[in-house]
Amino acid sequence: MKQIFLISAFLLAGFAVSAQDIYSCRNATLSFFSSAPLEDIDAKTTQGVSALNIKTKAVYFKVQINTFQFKKKLMQEHFNENYLESDKYPHAEFKGKITDNIDLTKDGAYPVTVEGTLNIHGVPKTYREKGTVTVSNGKVTAASKFNVRVADHKIKIPSLVVKNIAEVVEVSVNAVYEPVK
């Protein structure tokens, strides 16, 4: 009986602590840009979701592919239909961790290194990228910019349009987090 009580206490304590440590964002901005001989491509969404655990320093991002908005709608159609196949692979997802030895419970601006798995187009790949995390008055913001090689995620570009689409795309992410109540 005492044992059960103890276990319950542990479990409850565990959840109680975790809720305070987790920060979430439901309007993360993700954008990407690429420059090819014939065409620049840029697209943006503000409908990404993200969460950050300031104790364990776990990081999570998820975005619905078809929320990316392009200036040229034809490009957006091709992006969804031909390249990212967003009907088959509706989301891109990142699960990772901040590897630096820093204390995110204290205010400050921290340059960080994030390591984890990014899944785009159903193909996971490990990334190790730089970013920044700013903590002030219970508000946390995070930003990062990194390159994705489209071939790493088995996104095929036919040779006919190779001059229109770059092989490496620069991805930017920005999130402003609120504590999860």
Binding site: F10, L11, G14, F15, S18, D21, I22, S24, A51, L52, N53, K55, T56, A58, V59, Y60, K62, E93, K95, K97, V180
Partner: peptide
């Protein structure tokens, strides 16, 4: 407690 700790790191469930 192990699954609880893991759940904390697997933020996707949120």
């Amino acid at each position: 407690t192990a699954p609880a700790a893991m759940a904390q790191d697997d933020l996707s469930a949120m």
